[in-house]
Design a protein around this nucleic acid. Structure first.
Lengths: 155, 155
DNA sequence: TCTATTGAGGACCATTTTAGTCCCCTATCG
DNA sequence: CGATAGGGGACTAAAATGGTCCTCAATAGA
């Protein structure tokens, strides 16, 4: 399925909500209502987003959350990473490859390329994109060409 | 992390192994050894791949598994789908949207676009690609441009 | 300074998912 | 027939996930 966790989903929704009114601070309670999700859960999500540096928080009355930087500079990768950790399709696609099957695996390199391609894709989608209302159900324009997996011919 | 399950990983490795010697039938035991994984686990994976129509099996002595179609016609999506079910990033990105938050969500459409882009990417990677030994650690060529999220200007 | 408000941090539990194993049945070949 | 394969599915252990709750800390304003 390659699915996002539910919390990640919440995170995106909440971030989008904040992004639509970037000037004001948003209290967790307010967001929970706007988004129709239980308060404790939204709160938890918000905390994670703060820790990841995507939101800034302020306590006390008149406190709340706001974006740490413009929505155009926050990517889908950032949000996913904030909740689930860095995007990596396979066990071995993060730096310190502690996979002891490299020898017999034979697909590691290629998965990493695919993984990188997905990460790049997710890097190119910003919160501004996500937040933007697009009620039109257009089929996606797909400028994506197939990934070039290194083959000798191309070197 | 947007990670593949471990079984999916195994599936890819095993499929690649088979793809390298497409003519002969491969017994589960043989594959388990080649790939250095416990036999029951490999076996389970193989069964799933058969059920998904990616492998054909033959019982009895001289039996084993072989590709149901050429490696160039089996995609990464196929393999992931065989183990984890169809690729879909969010709860609501599969057909029958039973998500009752559509109203307050506001990002569903856009996630679906992203999801589709990833699926397309995974569709473009074939087992032949994955199986091919590419000892060269080239940085990936990335012909991927940003996803065009429908904005009014472009309609 | 006191109080109401709001976030921080983390403990905690229930549920689901995942991984892995095992057993018994069926098919094929010689 | 008997040896060698795979098919199906039950079962368990372990981990991840989702969700709740409680206590502490900061801030603003009366």
């Amino acid at each position: 399925m390659l699915k996002l966790s539910r919390l990640t989903d919440y995170a995106a929704v909440v971030m989008a909500q904040i992004a639509r009114y970037p000037e004001q601070a948003h209290a967790a309670t307010e967001l929970a209502e706007a988004v129709q999700l239980p308060h404790p859960t939204v709160s938890k999500t918000l905390k994670m987003l703060v820790r990841a540096g995507l939101l800034e928080s302020r306590r006390g009355s008149l406190g709340g959350y706001r974006l740490a930087r413009p929505a155009t500079l926050i990517t889908a990768s950032d949000i996913i990473g904030a909740i689930e950790g860095p995007v990596a399709m396979t066990e071995c696609s993060h730096a310190d490859g502690d996979c002891d099957l490299v020898a017999t695996c034979g697909v590691a390199d290629n998965w990493q390329r695919v993984s990188l391609a997905i990460r790049t894709l997710l890097d190119s989608v910003t919160l501004a994109h996500l937040a933007q209302e697009s009620p039109l159900k257009l089929p996606v324009q797909l400028p994506i060409q197939s990934v070039t997996l290194a083959s000798r011919a191309e070197i």
